[in-house]
Design a protein around this nucleic acid. Structure first.
Lengths: 344, 344
DNA sequence: GTGAAAGCGCTAACAC
DNA sequence: GTGTTAGCGCTTTCAC
């Protein structure tokens, strides 16, 4: 008979049910299940048949308890709604799944406190390792990371602390390259919309790259050309408006995210300025919307999926005690030149 | 002494370690932990002290095994990278966390097969219930949902099957309302960019709403005015280009997602058409980018976070066997009129 | 090649 | 109030 077997009550079948149906002992079923010890071919088939008929699946908690394993990867993210993170998430899930891990998702809503709490929480829930995707790494993190008792990989940012595994692009180099591009087009007054000050990492590195590029061109650093945004469209629009209201004479504008660039574009348009004729515009991230803007946006592409995949792989390697080559991984960025910075 | 205690080896502390340190039995510790039975106040304090000093946290697998509970909610999503889903996700995580559930994330990459596999997978991993966020519900789903042995809530779509719990807006009514708005502005030839044909739900319902509105205005249904997109910016641009290439004379264009509307805007611009003067444009979802476009986009707002929260709550209620009022929940949409459909 | 038995860390009867 | 005990479902020695 090939029919499915239903248990009297509707509890889920256990390994003993399978054993009974197959006419063997639980240990034999376990061997078949895990492909471990020796099992006679005919026995194996009987067992497999029983498994199918009962639609049996091992109880994960029992397994984890016995093996002290827990194939769960924590993912703490500061803002689930940034499109940028969606791609990263996808990469994380892809790798985790491929390596037999589930992904436990948590949202810190950008609050430091919550982030630290969640680190504890995911550990309590049995995660072997975690990824932290935050836009604002602070010294306070270090302590918690260290005592959290599990590897934590910082995805999409690099911090100096040599103990903290990080995966991300070289933000300084990327910003440098973009500024070089603008300078090469003859721009001398370049406005900058950076991220929030409480994020010493991303914005800090990118600013450093900008400074270096200007310096290399023998140009002064002018704080009046810098405004702060919160990486959102609205934030970008408002920052650009402040810049314009201030009356600074800029011929180019570099926003630290595509979304802020989009907002800035709106502000420029409303001010009667044409892009790129009056003001060249550039963003960062290469989201789908960068190409969808009119004009299409020059930007820095980050390998978002790659960041997710590498981070997850690194975290799992660390969790399993495998040897890892390096805990700081820099993934390649790429300057994408589009019409928004076309030469006049 | 208030100092932390380290175990000789570095295994994590168990309830017995706590018991030993506190000078009580494991069951007493358990009582303190769960606030169940009666415990003398002084004993409780001793135990709590021991818990702190050992930095003890109950082993989740052991707990789950014993309680047969497993506080995990599966979340299977067809496209992690759609900004729309980010907000939904956020709502799901919020509610799940508040109710003591972890969220196990899986990505079906829009593939039906994978979706069905993952439903099995999350169950195997011990999820008590799951959410399915798919843009293409098909009859094949029904069977799997039924035999999956756990409640599965369809988030952000409504299907006819009376057994399938669903949460989402009334797509037909929303599309109807938007069309009414366009008709009220005097538009008679309205282009439509719908979703893929293999999604009988979302696109089907919205089309129905469109039909009804035209019918109500005594206008004929013209298939030549309809094009298909894949909900992406590029998809919208290409669909609009096909519409234009075909030479249909439309004065308004309704895309079934804001992203497609963004793409369409680009196509219209490139064709030398002004929005809204030559062609009025509307989208669906009210993503942040809708407001960031120039001109800002008229659209239908969906309560994305609410959809996530309600779906998660419903799934958990079902999982825990709580009485639920209804398994079909319609959340309110809202027409947001912006400049992209301003009267000439 | 296969089975019996022990035990992972926890909770819930049930004694006392 | 508190301790003792059994057992959740699984894997893994260790006999046979």
């Amino acid at each position: 008979m090939n029919a499915l077997i239903g248990l009297g009550d509707n509890r889920r079948p256990t390994i003993r049910d399978v054993a009974k149906v197959a006419g063997v002992s639980p240990s034999t079923v376990s061997r078949v299940l895990n492909g471990r010890g020796p099992v006679r071919e005919s026995t194996r088939r009987q067992v497999e048949e029983a498994i199918r008929r009962l639609r049996y699946a091992p109880h994960p908690a029992a397994r984890d308890l016995r093996l002290k394993s827990g194939h769960l990867l924590g993912l703490i993210i500061s803002n689930l709604t940034f499109p940028f993170f969606g791609e990263v998430l996808k990469g994380v899930v892809e790798t985790a799944t491929a390596r037999g891990y589930g992904v436990l998702l948590a949202d810190s809503e950008g609050r430091l406190r919550r982030e630290l709490e969640l680190l504890e929480e995911v550990r309590r829930r049995g995660c072997r390792a975690s990824l932290l995707i935050t836009s604002a790494y602070r010294p306070e993190h270090a302590l918690v990371l260290r005592r959290s008792g599990m590897p934590v990989v910082l995805a999409s940012a690099h911090v100096a602390d040599p103990e903290v595994p990080c995966v991300g692009v070289d933000n300084a180099a990327a910003a440098f390259e973009l500024m070089q591009h603008l300078l090469a087009q003859g721009h001398r007054r370049i406005g900058i919309i950076r991220g929030p000050l409480d994020d010493p990492v991303t914005s800090g590195e990118r600013l450093k790259g900008c400074r270096l590029a200007l310096q290399g061109a023998g140009l002064p650093w002018d704080e009046a050309l810098v405004e702060e945004g919160d990486f959102s469209i609205r934030g970008g629009r408002e920052a650009a408006e402040r810049l314009l209201a201030r009356g600074v004479a800029m011929t180019a504008l570099f926003a630290f995210s595509d979304e802020m660039a989009m907002g800035a574009l709106q502000a420029l348009r409303r001010a009667g300025l044409r892009v790129p004729e009056d003001v060249a515009l550039a963003g960062f991230d290469d989201l789908p919307l960068a190409e969808g803007l009119e004009p299409p946006l020059t930007t820095i592409a980050q390998p978002k999926g790659e960041i997710g995949r590498v981070s997850a792989g690194l975290a799992i390697d660390l969790a399993e005690g495998r040897p890892v080559q390096r805990i700081k991984v820099t993934v390649p960025h790429r300057l994408i030149v589009r019409r928004s910075t076309a030469a006049h």
